[in-house]
Every structure is written in C-alpha cells, then in structure tokens.
C-alpha cells in the first residue's frame, strides 16, 4: 500500500506538472482538489486516464472521479480494491 501511495504521489506531481510541489509535500490525507492541493476538473480528467492506463480502472462519468480522488489514502484504497492490472 505504501508503495502504491508513493507511486501515486510521483505520478501526480509529474503528470499534473506540479512544479512547486514535491512528493514529500503531499500528505496521505491532504485534500487534493480545490483549497487543498489546488487540483481542478482538468486534473480530474488527467487522473481518470492515469487510472485506466496504469491500473485498468475505467471511469465513464467524470463526476465519479471527485470522490475517488479526494486524497492519496482514498485513491490508494479504491485502486487496490478495483485494479485489474
């Protein structure tokens, strides 16, 4: 689980181009969207592709993403329960 969390943080920083944020800055419980890490709806779409590409999880409704991407903890839990690769 910790490896997955670390991997998620690395991917988020890299794919979303979070220039001023390092992996260590992200706490497992930090809120990722809005006031938290500042992610927005375009980032949510980027993360949906990441779920599909890296873990074989397909979301069809972008609204589903918001709950899943709440924090690293929530994301990691969802991925470990639903991943197909």
């Amino acid at each position: 689980m910790d490896t997955l969390k670390q991997e998620l943080k690395e991917n988020i920083v890299e794919q979303l181009n979070l220039e001023d944020i390092s992996v260590d800055d992200i706490d497992d419980n930090d809120i990722l969207f809005g006031e938290g890490l500042g992610l927005d709806s375009i980032d949510a779409l980027e993360l949906i592709v990441m779920l599909d590409k890296n873990y074989g999880i397909k979301l069809t409704d972008p609204k589903e993403g918001r709950a899943i991407f709440e924090s690293i903890n929530v994301m990691a839990k969802y991925i470990s329960e639903n991943r197909t690769k």
Binding site: I42, E46, K53
Partner: peptide
C-alpha cells in the same frame, strides 16, 4: 488510447 485533455485544450 489513453489521451489526456491538457494538450488538446
């Protein structure tokens, strides 16, 4: 496959 929106926007 696996396209992301940022560059399209």
């Amino acid at each position: 496959q696996f396209l992301t929106p940022t560059s399209f926007i």
